[in-house]
């Protein structure tokens, strides 16, 4: 190939995040954001959730979800800014802000989950 671009890698992360987000985020958000706070469904107790997140598999799941969903966001948001606002001259700035944000979020998620007590 003539030149190896990063686009396939970014697109793979975007797609994986899109699939992951589509399957799991609606139910998570419904429970954590509406059903539990509004008392539609009794919320799980602190002890139970704490024990749940202690499981390595659960932490791996949360980490993958957070990171991929953020790369999904970065990719879409980047193109929305390009096209929706016609600010292509800020290409590089947008690129670094979007993927930089996703990387920062990934690091934050890794830090929180790695140090989870």
């Amino acid at each position: 190939m003539a030149k190896q671009s990063n686009e396939p890698v970014l697109w793979a992360l975007f797609s994986a995040g899109g699939v992951f987000a589509a399957f799991v985020i609606p139910v998570h958000l419904f429970l954590i954001g509406l059903a539990f706070p509004l008392g539609w469904i009794p919320a799980p107790g602190y002890e139970y959730l704490h024990a749940l997140v202690r499981l390595p598999l659960a932490r791996l799941y949360v980490f993958a979800l957070c990171s991929l969903a953020l790369f999904h966001w970065a990719h879409r948001f980047r193109y929305t800014l390009y096209d929706g606002l016609q600010i292509k001259h800020l290409n590089e700035l947008i690129f670094f802000c979007c993927y930089g944000g996703a990387i920062l979020g990934t690091v934050w998620a890794g830090y929180l989950l790695w140090n989870f007590r």
Partner: peptide, 9 residues
């Protein structure tokens, strides 16, 4: 896009 991504990897 999928084909190109697989080729890239």
């Amino acid at each position: 896009k999928l084909t190109a991504t697989i080729e890239r990897f």
